[in-house]
């Protein structure tokens, strides 16, 4: 009474690993594309003022993101009824571009902070922004004893 026990493959037939190879290949390609195309400036999140100005008239009217520091002393707000207007200058240390927007940024907006504005450069050299994104840096600071952060706050709608 000797019955040879069936071997494993009878129960689980081998499958071809093509699927996995294709998947791994796709993953490698996507990762490589992400890693190298960004290095090659194909995926630049924003342009700095000197880069945008270097393109001359070609840059006028094109929807882009402009990034840099909010130049200290350049912020002017006007809020009269429904109308809201915020003007400031974005600088990268080499070049500066004045920005005007009708959309208030968040309360973390400050003079000297980083900002990324979306919009287009006008023929008059003023960048009309549809959105102002505040790019805070990696530095944190506690308020001085006895004060609240709101004491330091930029109030977007404040006239």
């Amino acid at each position: 009474m000797t019955v040879a026990p069936p071997t494993e493959p009878v129960l689980s037939p081998p499958r071809r690993p093509w699927g996995i190879l294709v998947l791994v290949g796709v993953v490698v390609l996507v990762v490589a594309w992400l890693a190298f195309s960004s290095v090659g400036n194909a995926l630049v999140y924003y342009q700095e003022p000197h880069e945008l100005l270097a393109r001359g008239d070609a840059a006028v009217g094109e929807t882009v993101r402009l990034g840099g520091q909010v130049e200290p002393g350049s912020v002017e707000r006007e809020a009269a009824g429904e109308a809201y207007e915020l003007r400031f200058v974005v600088t990268d240390g080499h070049a500066s571009i004045p920005v005007v927007t009708a959309n208030a940024p968040t309360a973390s907006f400050r003079e000297g902070t980083g900002a990324v504005v979306e919009g287009a450069l006008g023929a008059d050299g003023v960048f009309v922004a549809t959105q102002v994104i505040v790019k805070h840096d990696e530095n944190y600071e506690a308020p001085a004893p006895g004060t609240q952060p709101s004491d330091n706050s930029f109030i977007p709608a404040d006239g």
Partner: peptide
């Protein structure tokens, strides 16, 4: 902890 001076409570 206190909130961040610039970012407020969101931090």
């Amino acid at each position: 902890v206190p909130p961040d001076l610039n970012q407020g409570d969101a931090q």
